[in-house]
Design a protein around this nucleic acid. Structure first.
Length: 270
DNA sequence: ATGACTAATCGAATTAGA
């Protein structure tokens, strides 16, 4: 099983993350918003639990990491071209799977004194760069998993009241157009593909009793290309961690692939 | 209602998140 979780500070959340890993059958965990320099990441704690880690962090903000029970090879940190000053992309491979942990920019506020804001411009440019890279990955003919906090509310089933999000960077027409761009390349939102009519959320704001009211949004996604889709068996969300003490505002989303070990090919003989 | 929470920072308020 592979999962993605915006932990909102690995320093604060390390016990919660390790508790969840111990109670799940998670092989690979994609983390976002670690908010930690690489040298401060609790690598030893993960090692004691049987997980190797790859880290792409920075001070104070952003930061992505991947923990894996199975041998993992680092492919790249950042999207590999200009504009990568923020730590938001980390790519590894496990077996023949290519896997990325993604923390896509929020982009709000969209407007700044009557003009499109620098934050929203940065979000759109980042998405364009992600699309170019995702296209190249897809052409390798290998299973690809792009998991993370995409800061995109795809549709009405992904929040309580879509009208509230009109014009917001998480559901802005420009953001959605680029989100669909990933679809056109051949990537599918695995949760929605396997749960076509279910309303479910992955984030609940700390403010206003959002968790108690189940007033959430689904912005954490696991995208899969055709080769990965051929092997997927489930995609779901575990709400449990969001209800625990001192929780992240996000909860893990996950997907399962056939085989006893992650990414193992089917044992069906010819 | 520009606030409500939470986290990080050379903090005693500000920035950012979504």
């Amino acid at each position: 099983m592979i999962a993605s979780w915006n932990v909102n500070s690995i320093k604060v959340r390390v016990d919660a993350v390790l508790d969840w890993l111990a109670s799940s059958d998670c092989d690979i965990l994609l983390m976002q918003e670690t908010k930690s320099l690489d040298e401060n990441f609790p690598t030893e704690r993960f090692a004691e639990a049987g997980y190797a880690v790859e880290i792409h962090g920075q001070k104070t903000y952003n930061g992505v990491a991947i923990a894996s029970k199975q041998p993992m090879v680092l492919r790249q940190k950042g999207l590999g071209d200009a504009g990568d000053e923020q730590a938001r992309y980390l790519e590894i491979e496990v077996g023949d799977f290519i896997i990325a942990s993604i923390y896509l920019p929020n982009g709000n506020p969209v407007m700044d004194e009557g003009n499109i804001s620098a934050k929203f411009t940065y979000k759109l440019a980042w998405m364009e760069r992600l699309i170019r890279h995702a296209d190249a990955l897809n052409q390798l003919g290998r299973p690809v998993i792009l998991g993370g906090d995409f800061n995109i509310i795809p549709d009405a089933l992904d929040c309580h009241d879509l009208a509230r999000w009109h014009g917001d960077a998480l559901h802005h027409p420009h953001s959605l157009k680029l989100w669909r761009g990933l679809t056109y390349l051949g990537y599918a939102d695995s949760f929605r593909a396997l749960n076509p009519s279910r309303m479910a959320f992955s984030f609940w704001d700390y403010q206003g009793g959002a968790w108690q009211k189940d007033d959430g949004i689904r912005i954490d996604h696991i995208l899969i290309n055709a080769e990965a889709a051929d092997r997927i068996t489930a995609s779901d969300i575990d709400k449990t961690p969001r209800g625990l003490e001192r929780a992240s505002d996000h909860t893990p989303v996950f997907a399962r692939f056939e085989g006893a070990r992650f990414g193992a090919k089917s044992q069906i003989s010819a």
